[in-house]
Design a protein around this nucleic acid. Structure first.
Ligand SMILES: [Zn+2]
Ligand SMILES: [Zn+2]
Ligand SMILES: [Zn+2]
Ligand SMILES: [Zn+2]
Lengths: 165, 165
DNA sequence: GCTCATATGTTATAATGTAACGCCCATGAA
DNA sequence: TTCATGGGCGTTACATTATAACATATGAGC
């Protein structure tokens, strides 16, 4: 068995990895971070975060809503969007603009903006943390006198597994 | 008067610049490029391209549609989206995912993907062409064995003019 | 218990994007 | 000339994504 493979076994984890362990770890980190900050990770918000993590890739708000309805019968779009707003504010979830979809942050706690590699074959994504990308962006912006606030970097292509098929 | 200021007077042009000249130049370049390629820049497609350029910043599909209806009474969403699909295929227009909006390409002809600086104060945008950004992305992707297809780079912040207010 | 702020439930609607079908017209083969 | 072909576009309907507005509940602190 491979249940001992940690969630840190790579940004594009092998398909047989113990994903439930990833979910548990993410929830535990989220609870610790929110406790430290005095942010209220309520039952609903934790459920939504779990659903985000249970998906093996970026997931849309309405897909999340369908799954949440298995847990909370009355859930409606604002239910999901408000929970996602909180999770994004706390840096626990990122939104991928190109996909209109949401994904759990691999590096919560460290302030950063998401940089994503998105496989167009299998739909998986990986979060990149490359200061060089941000640096190159900042230099290009500075050359035009632009003051940078947020950086969206979303790259499509083929993940290692899908290249070899 | 400042009608002699060319569209090349900077990615964030002064507000009083002769924008109609930008539009004309863009249309002329588009006609030349499409003729070279055997692509059909029809009346509708040219009208949509003009409307995109007439906007001083990224513009949404439904805003374009409203304006197009002043020229073509029967226009409907597919009218706009089909024209935009063509213009994007031809590299004459870029889509900005964060904004769900469209903007004319400053560098048509040279194959590239858009990198954008978006001012959150005035709504203007500027296209960046920085091979270093693409290079940094490609290196980060290569380190994970990811094969890059497209790169979306969208930066928000303040343009020079809006910083000094 | 009371009060206030925050979180959530609920209904309706806005904003963005596509599917599907048919007509027209330019082109070229029969 | 006639007819098939294909692209471009009109048209209707619908799908998807997101938010506004207001009511209710919850929970901490007084
Ligand atoms: Zn992250
Ligand atoms: Zn893949
Ligand atoms: Zn461009
Ligand atoms: Zn500005």
């Amino acid at each position: 068995m491979n249940a001992s493979i940690s969630p840190a076994d790579g940004p594009f984890p092998s398909p047989g990895h113990d994903h439930s362990h990833c979910v548990e770890t993410a929830i535990a980190r989220a609870e610790r971070l929110c406790a430290e900050r005095g942010a209220r990770l309520t039952g609903l918000r934790r459920q939504v975060l779990e659903l985000v993590w249970q998906s093996h890739g970026p997931i849309g708000a309405y897909d999340l809503l369908d799954r949440l309805r298995g847990l909370r019968s009355g859930a409606a779009p604002p239910t999901i969007y408000r929970a996602l707003d909180f999770l994004i504010e706390q840096g626990l979830v990122h939104r991928i603009a190109r996909l209109n979809a949401f994904v759990g942050c691999d590096h919560p706690g460290a302030p950063h903006q998401g940089q994503f590699l998105i496989c167009t074959a299998c739909g998986s994504s990986a979060e990149l943390v490359e200061p060089e990308i941000a640096g190159a962006i900042d230099r290009g912006a500075a050359a035009l006198g632009f003051r940078v606030d947020t950086r969206t970097v979303e790259v499509t292509g083929l993940c290692p597994r899908c290249q070899s098929r």
